[in-house]
């Protein structure tokens, strides 16, 4: 047991991307985001990540994981559970996108409106969310994030190393391109 000199600590992803994860594209650079559906910074990052995936879809494999800070964002857990309920029906990404596009109006009623608009069974999902059937799944993402050094949202990991730079499109592009060159 020691005093850790903070400067030499490199935060690394301790939970590798696996079959339970929500992943887009299949490039060689892994970009993992820990986010919260009610966090406005994650809302901004969402459009940036979409642009990034358009520009680098052959390079990047993107994974989204839940990191709801419920004491600050009261419906963030609920939104993540709804996204997981949709995932169980093969509709994670449509609901994920809807949540970020409507994040200012997220509340229990609006969540069900969104679910219905996307053609999902709202009563069934309301029942699952009410019984917190999927809360453990969300919690697992959260704890894995804490263990990996996620210190707020959004936090990105590029090839398993925490990206401590900014997440403007140019900065993410540069970081992803650097990682791609390093893996060649």
């Amino acid at each position: 047991m020691t005093t850790t000199p903070f400067q030499v600590t490199v935060a690394r992803l301790v939970v590798p991307v696996g079959p339970d994860d929500h992943t887009l594209s299949d490039g060689q650079v892994s970009l993992v985001e820990y986010g919260d559906y009610q966090c406005p910074y994650c809302g901004m990052a969402h459009t940036i990540v979409q642009d990034l995936l358009r520009l680098r879809h052959e390079t990047v494999r993107y994974t989204y994981r839940h990191f709801p800070l419920t004491n600050v964002h009261p419906y963030a857990d609920l939104a993540a559970e709804v996204a997981e309920a949709a995932a169980a029906r093969g509709k994670f990404w449509p609901v994920h996108n809807w949540l970020f596009e409507h994040q200012r109006s997220i509340n229990p009623r609006q969540l069900m409106v969104g679910v219905e608009r996307l053609g999902l069974p709202s009563e069934e999902i309301a029942g699952e969310v009410g019984a917190h059937v999927l809360l453990d799944r969300v919690r697992r993402d959260f704890v894995g994030g804490v263990r990996s050094g996620v210190n707020g949202t959004p936090t990105f990991f590029i090839n398993g190393i925490r990206h401590d730079g900014g997440y403007a499109l140019e900065e993410l592009l540069e970081a992803v391109d650097e990682a791609a060159e390093a893996t060649v």
């Binding site: 047991m1 020691t2 005093t3 850790t4 903070f6 935060a11 804490v146 263990r147 210190n151």
Partner: peptide, 24 residues
């Protein structure tokens, strides 16, 4: 059992704390 000082602008997160608690 463990201590850490972070630069004031950087949130050190909780991973170091949990690792120290594991050790304890």
């Amino acid at each position: 059992a463990w201590s850490q000082v972070a630069p004031s602008g950087i949130n050190p997160g909780a991973d170091g704390i949990l690792n120290a608690l594991d050790g304890l």
